Measured scan of single mutants.
Amino acid sequence: EVTIKANLIFANGSTQTAEFKGTFEKATSEAYAYADTSKKDNGEYTVDVADKGYTLNIKFAG
């Protein structure tokens, strides 16, 4: 089991951190699914992958 950390960075400057656990593939998939659901309210996003994929910096356009 691994933990994927997602740092969500919103257009207004606020941030949120979420953690997803499971296999690398499952946790990563859940992090992207979470970003997709947040996209409806926060606009399109880009992802900067860090820490060999264990940290995702997800920046929303607003």
Score class of each variant (00 low, 15 high):
Lys26Phe: 12
Ile58Asn: 00
Gly62Cys: 10
Asp51Lys: 03
Ala35Asp: 01
Asp41Glu: 14
Asn7Ile: 15
Phe20Leu: 02
Asn7Cys: 12
Lys39Cys: 10
Asp51His: 05
Glu44Tyr: 09
Thr23Tyr: 06
Asp36Gln: 09
Asn12Val: 04
Ala33Glu: 10
Leu8Met: 09
Tyr54Ser: 05
Tyr34Thr: 04
Ala50Asn: 07
Asp41Pro: 05
Ile58Leu: 06
Phe60Cys: 03
Thr55Ser: 05
Phe20Pro: 00
Tyr45Pro: 02
Lys21His: 13
Ala31Asn: 00
Val49Pro: 06
Glu1Ser: 11
Glu1Lys: 09
Lys26Trp: 12
Gly62His: 08
Thr23Phe: 07
Glu30Asn: 10
Thr28Lys: 07
Gly53Asn: 03
Lys52Asp: 15
Ala50Tyr: 10
Thr17Pro: 04
Ala27Leu: 01
Ala61Phe: 14
Ala31Ile: 06
Thr15Phe: 11
Glu30Leu: 14
Asp41Ser: 11
Ala6Asn: 00
Ala27Asp: 01
Thr28Cys: 11
Ala31Met: 03
Asp48Ser: 13
Thr55Val: 10
Gln16Asp: 09
Phe10Pro: 00
Gly13Trp: 05
Thr23Ile: 07
Leu8His: 01
Lys52Asn: 15
Asn42Ile: 05
Phe60Gly: 00
Tyr32Ser: 02
Tyr54Arg: 07
Gly13Arg: 06
Asn12Thr: 07
Phe60His: 02
Tyr32Gly: 01
Glu25Tyr: 08
Thr15Gln: 11
Tyr32Thr: 04
Lys59Trp: 14
Thr28Arg: 09
Ile4Glu: 01
Ala50Pro: 03
Thr37Met: 15
Lys26Ile: 11
Ile58Glu: 00
Glu30Trp: 07
Thr17Tyr: 13
Thr23Gln: 07
Phe10Lys: 03
Gly13Thr: 04
Tyr32Val: 06
Ser14Ile: 13
Asn12Trp: 07
Tyr32His: 06
Ser14His: 13
Gly43Tyr: 04
Thr23Gly: 06
Thr3Asn: 05
Lys52His: 14
Ser38Glu: 14
Val47Asp: 01
Ala27Phe: 02
Ile9Phe: 15
Lys52Arg: 13
Tyr32Phe: 12
Leu8Ile: 11
Asp41Thr: 13
Ala31Trp: 02
Asp51Arg: 03
Ala35Pro: 01
Ala27Gln: 01
Asp36Thr: 07
Phe24Glu: 03
Thr55Ile: 09
Lys5Met: 10
Glu44Trp: 10
Ala18Cys: 15
Gly62Ala: 10
Lys52Val: 06
Ile9Lys: 07
Lys5Cys: 11
Ala6Arg: 02
Ile58Arg: 00
Glu30Lys: 09
Asn57His: 09
Lys40Phe: 11
Phe10Gly: 02
Tyr34His: 07
Asn42Leu: 08
Tyr34Met: 09
Thr28Asn: 06
Gly22Tyr: 02
Ser14Pro: 06
Asp36Ser: 07
Glu1Pro: 10
Ala35Trp: 02
Phe20Gly: 00
Gly53Val: 02
Lys40Leu: 12
Ala61Asp: 11
Ala11Gly: 08
Gln16Glu: 14
Ala33Val: 07
Glu25Lys: 09
Val49Ile: 13
Glu44His: 10
Ala11Met: 09
Ile58Tyr: 11
Gln16Gly: 07
Ser38His: 15
Lys21Pro: 03
Tyr32Pro: 01
Ser38Ala: 15
Lys21Ile: 11
Tyr45Ala: 02
Ser38Pro: 02
Phe24Gln: 05
Thr28Phe: 08
Ala50Met: 13
Lys26Gly: 11
Ile4Leu: 06
Ala50Ser: 11
Thr17Leu: 09
Thr46Tyr: 09
Ile58Phe: 15
Ile4Tyr: 01
Ser14Thr: 14
Tyr34Asn: 03
Gly53Lys: 02
Gly13Met: 06
Phe20His: 01
Glu30Ile: 06
Ile58Ser: 00
Asn57Arg: 05
Glu25Phe: 09
Asn7Tyr: 14
Val2Pro: 03
